[in-house]
Design a protein around this nucleic acid. Structure first.
Lengths: 221, 221
DNA sequence: AAACATTTGTCCGTATGTATA
DNA sequence: ATATACATACGGACAAATGTT
């Protein structure tokens, strides 16, 4: 009996983890809308577990800014306004920029090659008009750089912030909003890595995050 | 009957919150040492609550990087090495620098005055050789700037990072390690605010965080 | 004002999974 | 390899708090 090798995860997920990922997805993609009330009892029933793992998941999501728990009252999905565009992007840009500067110092040839491959696929996905795949490849590009810094403090913050960006796009535009300019900027970042130029890597990276912010902002006026 | 106005908190804390703050304190000040095993049962008994709020507190601490939970195995205080000095400070510097740049744009006279007062008390605490008070006034200075940005995403990350810095100092030096140069740098930041110079505010702020990193780093060699 | 309905917060027992002998 | 000991993960009941009728 042949068993598929890549069946989801080798390590089983805990109920809390499953609940966390599922509820997070629902919030990010807008299934659970901003301000919507969350009943842990209902979620427990929907996900087929007890309230305990749901509560734990909700508390984690509260830490990440996706839900607000009011003791004794209720638990709700956090609201977002267009102002959040200018609140989420700048810190993300700052940390990604830092990560780029750090990665520039220790970028090997095989690392830049890997980035170039990912960026190539990203560009192809844009041409192919498969925005969801493009978005995932864009995130893969940026995550690779963050992971390269081997700094868990940075990763632990950029990761949820990227999800907040996704949520912004879904909630306000029902769209992932990607621009072709990113491909060029990514290439410039890779070049800066090859030239061991942290300053330039940081500068381009910042621009690569602040430009989409401006684009979103303009489309809302 | 006169009731003290500033009696700790008007709102009662939940058991989870109490447990969270207490365990966090113990980890930061070294009472609970790096790598130490945490038994939720023992903690529950020590704090006079059941295991549920303890478990929830530990999960929150895990998100902040103070605790590692290994499913089915054990729960331990995270280890820190001297390498962490160079991992914690840079992202903190990057975000504080961003906060300074943002605050420079909207700093009022009364705001800079408040900062100047806090910085004055900070300098006095240094002269008085009351390092713990000095540290708290230093944090108050920086937190005021972060809060001024009204950006909860930044605050939610800098706040635990500052505690990691505290922990570094306590664990490696049993000391809070403050330098007089900070007073001058703070004043330079305030001046940059008054002159509405975000660039300079950001630059001084970064230096104000990276200099202590270098000082700690040198003292470890 | 007081009792109700609802939701969150806490307790504790048990099942599950992991490491060790 | 099997059994044992132990810690975590989960479930379900109860208590407390809040808003409402």
């Amino acid at each position: 009996m042949p068993i598929p090798q890549n069946y989801s995860r080798p390590e089983r997920m805990s109920a809390k983890e499953r609940a966390f990922l599922q509820i997070q997805r629902w919030i990010v993609d807008g299934t659970l809308q901003p301000g919507e009330k969350l009943s842990d009892g209902d979620l427990a029933e929907a996900l087929g577990v007890s309230r305990t793992p749901i509560r734990e998941a909700l508390q984690t999501l509260e830490m990440q800014g996706f839900v607000e728990m009011h003791r004794g009252r209720d638990t709700r999905v956090t609201t977002i306004t267009k102002d959040d565009i200018h609140k989420i992007y700048p810190p993300l840009a700052a940390l990604q920029s830092l990560a780029a500067a750090m990665a520039a110092g220790c970028a090997t040839a095989e690392f830049t090659e890997r980035l170039r491959t990912t960026n190539g696929e990203f560009g192809m996905a844009l041409k192919r008009r498969t925005p969801y795949q493009a978005m995932e490849l864009d995130e893969e590009f940026h995550n690779a750089i963050v992971e390269r810094t081997e700094n868990p403090y940075i990763a632990s913050f950029t990761s949820p912030l990227q999800l907040h960006v996704r949520r912004l796009k879904y909630v306000f535009f029902h769209d992932v909003m990607l621009s072709n300019e990113s491909v060029i900027e990514h290439e410039q970042i890779i070049t800066a890595f090859e030239q061991k130029d942290p300053q330039r890597a940081a500068e381009v990276m910042r621009h690569n995050w602040l430009r989409p912010m401006e684009e979103l902002s303009r489309r809302l006026e």
